[in-house]
Design a protein around this nucleic acid. Sequence first.
DNA 1: TATGACTTGACGTTATTTGTCAAATATAAT
DNA 2: ATTATATTTGACAAATAACGTCAAGTCATA
Lengths: 103, 103
Amino acid sequence: MKESKTTGEILREKREKKGLLLRQVAAMLDIDTAILSKIERSERKASKEQIIKLAEILELDEEDLIVQFLSEKILYEIKDEELGSKALKVAEQKMKYNKSHKS
Amino acid sequence: MKESKTTGEILREKREKKGLLLRQVAAMLDIDTAILSKIERSERKASKEQIIKLAEILELDEEDLIVQFLSEKILYEIKDEELGSKALKVAEQKMKYNKSHKS
DNA sequence: TATGACTTGACGTTATTTGTCAAATATAAT
DNA sequence: ATTATATTTGACAAATAACGTCAAGTCATA
């Protein structure tokens, strides 16, 4: 399987590759540098709006970044749960079921 | 696929089958009747502790009920997301990856 | 040491969650 | 119909978590 990067790592790598400073990107997002720093180190979660802006600013594929972001959000919900893996599978089944039943 | 009941429906059906009143079960959970009513109608989410207590009170399999509860929590996170299905799959992959790498 | 980039933690504000309460609405028996 | 009991509804309050600012701290480098 391909390596597994956090959203924060993806953001930091791409920002550095583009030679942008935390300060600059944070300004574009209209938040304090401290928050962006924390987002990149996975100490805080970005909001969906921030993710979308970041994809644009850093020229990352928006869909990929959102999927990445959402999957992290999902895993966060079950991070301390023994039954997390089972719950994920059941969630997928329900998702399929609902799709096919247009509920 | 087998039918898909909500946690609330499961709780209500079993409570009624046992002939218990909202008032009685709510008292055992130490919450107001109104909340339990809302939980059973999926208007509010139960807490994990409440789910565990409910499994005991209603003699439901605890593991099944927790899985049910967690999967609902997961789906709640992505309910308005177009990319929810993709995110779920990615979350599962990451889960597997992390397991095999004992992170 | 001086400067610029980033990090850390204390703090306040806002949003969300979780609960209470009382009134409204069933449901059923007298 | 009236009474009694069960459930539902929505307005509100309290507790908790999320989100942000700020200032002081660290780290690297000139």
